[in-house]
Design a protein around this nucleic acid. Structure first.
Length: 359
DNA sequence: AAGTCTATCAACCGCTATTAC
DNA sequence: AGTAATAGCGGTTGATAGACT
């Protein structure tokens, strides 16, 4: 137990301040200045504790407090400072003249935090959330790399966060594809891409998908039990097959947790990426994400209709530097802010995705 | 129109750091 | 140096307004 609340003593008043109380407090501080909060209530004839008076003054009555909506620049500053300082609201407030730590904290919790989550960013680490990522985008990029050099190193940044079995499998497939597609085919046939572990982890519907030549469309959910049947007929083997296979093998992140190949402990982890890289932009403190940090929206169904084309485009530069003069604009709509921040954050999660699950 | 839900934010609580004695 | 009081901070709560059904 900590110290007893000061306001419990002497039956001091709690709760919202009345205009009369505000007037008393303002008048007293105008005459004597702030400070000596312990004696202030008595001297100002207020039935409040000093702590309450200090809070009321610093958070609400101070003449230099800026009221009203946060500008884009203020919002951007808060995000950037938070990525560096964390929940050091007073330190952040010190960089935002006229804003109080309490106000910034409230604004963070009610607006920015939710927006970051909606855009696939963890508000604590400022890194993309692994459980919102689409690894198939990464793999597809590698698969279609015109240089034809297998760039597994692109994957290394995420390797540590993937199921090791999955990563090994994908790496092997890509390696074989690079060396010789026929070798890859043999590998697929020999392993049937369905060892005991994979049988348990890959839904039947996803495996069955590869019994058809072109598989980039929505998987057909069948009740077939032939999960371990040969996945590919030699005559059917195409790059599309491989792509679809990879996409499905790596597309479980957005699905229900029972089918998730990523260990549950890792779904609470994040990419090992410097915090500010999640945002992009020209500001040195906001590096542009690499190709490997493209992300894909989860579709409305959450799992079935997989769409490569929803990959988020190359990041834009931050529209304004951190300390630029204000481009806005109090009074803009939430949608406009959303749009602004979406471009700032570079990738987004559909509204239909229930971000409350991640809060 | 009434009831319910949701978002917001002022204010409080509990803890740590700092200061005074 | 040790102790108590005070200041300050961050997390949380709860009242309320507005949106939704």
């Amino acid at each position: 137990m900590g110290r007893a609340p000061c306001c419990d003593k002497n039956g001091l008043k709690k709760g919202p301040w009345t205009p009369e109380e505000d007037h008393k407090l303002i008048s007293y501080i105008q005459q004597h200045g702030p400070g000596n909060w312990r004696n202030l209530p008595k001297n100002a004839a207020l039935q409040r504790c000093g702590k309450s008076c200090r809070l009321r003054w610093t958070n609400y009555l101070r003449p230099d407090i800026k009221r009203g909506r946060f500008s884009f620049e203020e919002e951007e500053t808060i995000i950037q400072l938070h990525s560096i300082l964390g929940n050091k609201w007073s330190a952040i407030a010190a960089r935002l003249p006229g804003r109080t730590d309490n106000e910034i904290k409230n604004y963070w919790n009610t607006h920015i935090r939710k927006r970051l989550l909606r855009n696939g960013i963890d508000p604590v680490t400022h890194a993309p959330r692994l459980d919102l990522l689409d690894l198939s985008t990464l793999l597809r990029s590698t698969l279609y790399n015109s240089s034809s050099l297998l760039n597994v190193s692109n994957l290394l940044g995420t390797q540590a966060l993937l199921n090791p079995e999955l990563f090994r499998l994908v790496s092997t497939l890509l390696s074989l594809k690079q060396e010789n597609p026929e070798t890859l085919l043999q590998y697929l046939q020999q392993n049937q891409l369905c060892n005991s572990q994979m049988q348990n982890q890959i839904p039947t519907s996803h495996l069955n998908q590869f019994q058809t030549p072109v598989s980039c469309e929505a998987p057909t959910c069948t009740t077939s039990t032939a999960a371990c049947a040969p996945l590919l007929d030699q005559t059917q083997f195409t790059q599309d097959n491989l792509e679809a296979l990879l996409s499905n093998l790596t597309n479980f992140n957005g699905q229900n947790s029972q089918e998730n190949l990523i260990p549950s402990t890792l779904t609470e982890s994040y990419l090992t990426q410097p915090p500010s890289q999640a945002y992009g932009g020209s500001n040195p403190s906001v590096p542009v994400p690499s190709e490997s940090s493209s992300f894909q929206s989860l579709n409305n169904n959450g799992n079935q209709n997989f769409n490569f084309d929803s990959v988020i485009s190359t990041p834009l530069s931050s529209p304004t530097p951190l300390n630029s003069s204000s481009t806005y604009i109090n009074g803009s709509t939430e949608d406009e802010r959303e749009s602004y921040c979406s471009s700032l954050l570079k990738f987004e999660i559909p509204e239909s995705l229930d971000i409350n699950d991640f809060m």
